[in-house]
Every structure is written in structure tokens, then in C-alpha cells.
């Protein structure tokens, strides 16, 4: 009797703290995320402005998402950002690998490459408007290494090149943070593995292939997938640098325009719901892919012993390969 009474009192106290500690975050989450989300789904079936009458139009907004040429164009545009993000991940991986070996002045180089990540979007907008202006920073540097100004394009106006210019700013900004992320994963590898490999005469490629790569493949795969879905929602570079002019308006920039300038709230909502649908599908594909890739449980979670055993086997194989060659 006593015990159950104490137990009940305890449950009651727990309940108090649970309620006290969850009510504010849940309230904020519902107010600023879930309520707007549900409203957005509802709006996507209406023809409406911010103020004034609303007319139910069924699926018509969704049909427009797939038929308006300006929206379809943006879907193709995201391919630029997809290519960009693959380049970004590859470059980050390459540099992180370099920093895994001894580099003089490592902290300084790392700091330079990472710092752009900490700059705010508006400042980046100004920096690159300046950078790409005719005859300014980029043109000057290219002239120094032998290009003729006459042959250089207008980086932000010329439609053949301007989307690549914007993609470059995105790589410039985020590559350093990817690099730090990969480096973090690589550094979590036991130091003795690197030493053993070097004692064993493994070359740089073998070290990368057998020690570094296994330790980061989860995070690399995750980042590639993330950046692919991220490329659909690319927003900042065109928003702050070109305002979407000269054919640089991405899906989000066009949506932002439709919502705020043309005030077609229903259509903008339908675009947002469509984007969310794509993201959710991508998430499922990602989960399925992960299950498939790591079905043999050969992941980062394996115990140190297993890792060491695998290492030994690989070393032996490497030695054999070397002997054979």
C-alpha cells in the first residue's frame, strides 16, 4: 500500500514535469510549423490573395505547377545545383583526406576554407555582386593569368554561364562545412590504424581506400542525398545576388515571387506542398537505399575488434597485391 502510494506520487510528479517541460516547445511547434502547414495545404486548393475573396478551385493549382512554363523551367534549373552539390561533396572529401595527412599550417588553411560558412546571406550577395562585376575581382584575376577581358562573359547576365556562377557561390559557402564534417568522421578512426598502415607501407590511395573511406561512407552517402534534395530548395544565391533575373530564378525564388509579388497564395502553397512531397519521397528512397547499402551491417558501428581484424585482412591483401605487382 505504502509503496504503491509512493509510486503514484512519483508518477504524479513525473507528469507535472513532463507537462511543464513539453508545453512551450509543443505550443511553438504547432503555432509556427504545424498550423501553418495544415493551412498551407488548405490554401493550395483555393484561388486567393492575402486579402479578399477565396474561391475553391480543386486541383487546378497543382495542374498549374506542372504546366506553367516558368515553374517547369525551375525544375530543370535545379539540375545545376545538383551537379554543384556533387562537386561540392567530392571537393570536400578530397580536401578532408588531405588534412588527414600532415599538412603544415593546417589550422590556417582549414580556417580560410571554412570561414565563408559563417558569413550571412546578404553579405554574400554583396560580396559576389562585386566579385562578378565586369572588370572587377574575377575578371582582374583572370586577366592576370592571361585571359582577355573581351572574351570573358558577363558572369551574372550571360544565360550560358550565370547559373554556374551562382552555383559556384553556393559551393564557396558550404564546401568548408562539408569538409569539416567529413574530417570529423575521419578523425574518429583509431590512430593506430593509420600507424599500422604506414608501417606496413600502404600508399596514400590504399590508406584512403581501406581506412578513410569505410569510416565515412555513411556520412558521405547521407550528404549526397541531402544535397540532391537541397538543390530543389536552392534559394539564397539567386535571391540575394540576381533576384532571380536573367533566368536564374530557382523553384523557391519563383515561389517567393508568386506568393509575395503576384500574391497568388494558392499557387505558391501548391508549389510548397509539391516540394514537400518530393522531399518525403526522397527521404523514403534514402532510407531504403541505406538499408540496401548497409544490409551486411558493415557500418561504422562495428566494434573495434572487428575493424582491426578486417584491417589485418586488408593489409595482407594489400601486401599480396604489392608483391604481385
Amino acid at each position: 500500500m505504502e509503496i504503491s502510494k509512493g509510486w503514484n506520487a512519483r508518477k504524479k510528479k513525473q507528469l507535472q514535469v513532463i507537462i511543464a517541460f513539453t508545453i512551450v516547445p509543443l505550443f511553438l511547434l504547432i503555432l509556427f510549423t504545424y498550423y501553418p502547414f495544415l493551412e498551407m495545404i488548405r490554401y493550395s486548393f483555393y484561388n486567393m490573395k492575402y486579402i479578399g475573396p477565396r474561391k475553391f478551385v480543386g486541383w487546378r493549382n497543382y495542374v498549374q505547377v506542372f504546366t506553367r512554363p516558368d515553374i517547369i523551367r525551375t525544375l530543370l534549373l535545379s539540375l545545376y545545383y545538383m551537379v554543384g552539390s556533387v562537386v561540392q561533396v567530392a571537393l570536400a572529401l578530397y580536401l578532408a583526406t588531405i588534412f588527414c595527412f600532415k599538412v603544415k599550417g593546417e589550422n590556417l588553411w582549414k580556417g580560410f576554407i571554412f570561414f565563408p560558412y559563417l558569413i550571412n546571406g546578404i553579405a554574400i550577395g554583396f560580396i559576389f555582386k562585386f566579385f562578378y562585376t565586369r572588370g572587377f575581382v574575377l575578371d582582374t584575376v583572370l586577366q592576370v593569368i592571361g585571359f582577355d577581358l573581351e572574351n570573358l562573359p558577363y558572369w551574372l547576365k550571360d544565360q550560358k554561364i550565370n547559373n554556374w556562377s551562382l552555383v559556384f557561390t553556393s559551393i564557396w559557402r558550404y564546401m568548408g562545412s562539408n569538409m569539416v564534417l567529413f574530417l570529423g568522421a575521419m578523425m574518429s578512426v583509431d590512430d593506430t590504424l593509420y600507424e599500422a598502415a604506414s608501417l606496413d607501407g600502404a600508399n596514400k590511395w590504399q590508406t584512403f581506400r581501406h581506412i578513410i573511406l569505410p569510416s565515412i561512407k555513411t556520412i558521405v552517402t547521407l550528404n549526397i542525398i541531402l544535397s540532391i534534395t537541397g538543390s530543389l530548395s536552392a534559394f539564397e544565391p539567386p535571391y540575394v545576388i540576381t533576384s532571380g533575373a536573367n533566368g536564374t530564378g530557382t523553384f523557391f525564388v519563383v515561389m517567393n515571387d508568386i506568393a509575395h509579388t503576384s500574391q497568388k497564395v494558392g499557387l505558391a502553397s501548391a508549389m510548397a506542398v509539391f516540394l514537400l512531397f518530393v522531399i518525403i519521397v526522397a527521404k523514403f528512397v534514402q532510407d531504403a537505399l541505406f538499408k540496401y547499402i548497409f544490409r551486411n551491417a558493415d557500418t561504422d558501428d562495428e566494434s573495434a575488434d572487428v575493424a582491426r581484424a578486417r584491417k589485418k585482412a586488408q593489409k595482407a591483401a594489400a601486401r599480396k597485391a604489392k608483391g604481385g605487382a
Binding site: L26, L31, Y34, Y35, Y50, M271, I280
Partner: peptide, 23 residues
């Protein structure tokens, strides 16, 4: 609650500002 926060991370934030602005 965990799932609600996880799912919220997938929602396109800028897109929902239309409604958030009203609120």
C-alpha cells in the same frame, strides 16, 4: 513528439511564411 520534430525539419520553412505572416 520526437516524430513531430523530425517531420517538421522536412517542411519547407520559407514556403510557410505566407501563413506564419497571417498568424
Amino acid at each position: 513528439i520526437r516524430n513531430m520534430f523530425t517531420f517538421a525539419a522536412l517542411l519547407p520553412g520559407i514556403a510557410m511564411q505566407v501563413v506564419v505572416y497571417e498568424i
